[in-house]
Design a protein around this nucleic acid. Sequence first.
DNA 1: TCTGGGGTCCTAGGACCC
DNA 2: TCTGGGGTCCTAGGACCC
Length: 409
Amino acid sequence: MTPRQIMHIDMNAFFAAIEQQSHPALRGQPVAVVGSSQRTIILTASYEARPFGVKTGMTLNEARQKCPALQLVVANNRLYTEISRRIVALFHHYTPQVQVFSIDEAFLDVSGSLKLFGSAERIAQLIKAQLKAHFGLRCSVGIAPNKLLAKLASEMQKPDGLTLIAPAQVAAVLEDLPIGELCGIGRQTQHKLEQLGIYTCGQLGRFSPRVLKSRFGVIGERLVLMGQGVDNSPVVPPQEEPEVKTVGHSMTLKRDLEDRGEIARFLLQLAEMVGRRARRYGVSGRTITLTIRYADFSTFSRQQVQAQPVSQSEEIYRAALRILDRLLLGQPVRLLGVRLSRLEYRTRQLLLLPEERRRQQLTGALDEVNDRFGEFTLMSASLLGVKGKGSHVISPAWRPEGIRNVGVD
DNA sequence: TCTGGGGTCCTAGGACCC
DNA sequence: TCTGGGGTCCTAGGACCC
């Protein structure tokens, strides 16, 4: 069996680069894209800002301290989404096997396209040239026999990189590579592995799967394979991706709240956002989860199962409120979240009572107006007292459609 | 002005049933 | 007074990704 040729494409400083393209004055400047709310963080830093130490996840204060000349730009989600869609369309010129991994990352299986275009490297060069010509954007490309290694390869050269890992090079590349470099091994797992004396992928690949399984459960066996660079997971195009399993929204409040009435109004806002998206997907769900983060950042959640699946904002709101009513709040609340899960995709229109159907139709019309004119153009009366819109910032992890599928099968 | 927001998957314990 | 077990559903938390 000939090895697959998998490509991972990572747009370099995607949001910041787009802003620099649309605002020439920002070109060559240290730029950071941030959310619109007050308690936001750095979403993306341009390559001019990175040498100062400005990084994703930083607070604005910290970033400004490190780089006083930093230009802050509020994220323009619609623009990023549109450009992402056009870039994915460009990828489809080279293969139908495109997996959108996030708004700025994709996997391409080009194994079937080599005869047409010559080689994977050639395809990468063509894509890079087109991204530069059409969008003025750079990317880092990794080419390898599987997704795990392609992703690793694309990380190796930034910005504007093109890195190949041929099957014969895999063992040498991994031997001394720190385990934390692999997608799927985060800080906690890295720390636990290090306690076992495992620091490099080479060591991980030689470790006993049985011992790791006893410590890590199912992923233990996978970890050894990852250390060996083995990953048979396919590139999954959007139409084959599994259905979304949960729909939720959360928001960090402008200031910490103690008043239950105020908290309830934000819950209504979140329930409305969740309900509207659920209805747009055509789903309803039986489980509603309320998440609370206290001022000290400790976070917990409580859930409630409904007798029937729901998608109406009001029902979601009432469930969230019932959960809140049972809680004794120990501290001021910093963040609120509402999530709908155990989703069902059947819309059982025929089973509805006439009254319920009328209400659904009304909600549908409300959704349509909101979709066209933006969040909260129309809303329940009790929401009118809430100042400001939902910030609705998307992160680079946002995807145009479908859901993420990390993992090594 | 310390620390966003959207997801998936796994685990562990308890309730409950046969 | 003894201390089975398998299965499912539910809950809460934590690790991971961008």
